[in-house]
Nucleic acid binder design. Structure first.
Lengths: 132, 132
DNA sequence: CTTGACCCTATAGTTACTACAGGGACTATA
DNA sequence: TATAGTCCCTGTAGTAACTATAGGGTCAAG
């Protein structure tokens, strides 16, 4: 049985509007329609949307997602291309991890500086102020 | 001497348009004007904008910044509110690091498994797809 | 045979900026 | 004094990636 747009949304934790938006920008193909003009989805679309959502959760832009998908769609392309793009994505992920780790460090320092008094004594304000 | 909007931008690494935008949404107060209708800033505005930019760099939303600023403006209020906002944000950062670390693992596995075949054999789809 | 939950299209709003367009102010030089 | 160049002004529109609303159609249950 085909899935409605609502079913697909529940299965992938995506709002119905977002699915239609992805379709409108060409990330999801225009699906088949029922007699009543409802969108009808199958497991292929489910997989594709799951991929998109997971990549988005991990901070990839829609353009990056699009690149990954077109790579995956091109069955003729050989593995060297995939390998190269996968490595590029890996580097980006590693850069993001490094950035966020540094950010965590700074945030922790800011939080630790708060001893719990009143604003007049609060160090978080100072810590975020015009340093240097 | 008063600072022009350009001076303030250079001092805080902020584009002129962004400063005017912050003013338009009420994050920065409307400054004094010169005879020629130029905005004139002083050290107070410099401090406030530095705070905003630093908080933004650390990934706080403008709403979070706004909340922190209004808490900071109220000197009688205690530090707990600001501390809570910072801690919530830290938790978010830690979640993202964990997610990205998992993705790095998967991407590394994909790259290792991709030994030169065709897309049909490639694991990138499964690695990011609706598996779990 | 009607109620309510779902679906449809189209458009406008959100966040946090960024980029014009069209004009005015100020500084340095010829 | 004229003029070139760099800054400033307001106002509007564009960006990403959704999200919400308006105004209507479809379908299963009671």
């Amino acid at each position: 049985m085909a899935l409605t747009i609502g079913d697909l949304g529940k299965a992938t934790n995506t709002k119905v509007e977002t699915i239609r938006y992805y379709e409108s920008i060409g990330l999801l193909p225009k699906p088949a329609r029922t007699a009543g003009n409802y969108r009808a989805y199958g497991p292929v679309e489910l997989g594709r949307l799951s991929f998109i959502r997971r990549a988005r959760d991990l901070g990839f832009s829609l353009d990056q997602v699009r690149a990954m998908l077109s790579l995956a769609d091109d069955k003729a392309c050989d593995c060297a291309g995939i390998d190269r793009i996968a490595r590029e994505h890996l580097e980006e992920v590693e850069r993001k991890i490094a950035d966020l780790t540094a950010l965590r460090q700074e945030l922790s320092a800011v939080i630790r500086s708060c001893a719990g008094g009143t604003i007049a004594d609060c160090r978080i304000i100072e810590a975020l102020g015009p340093s240097q």
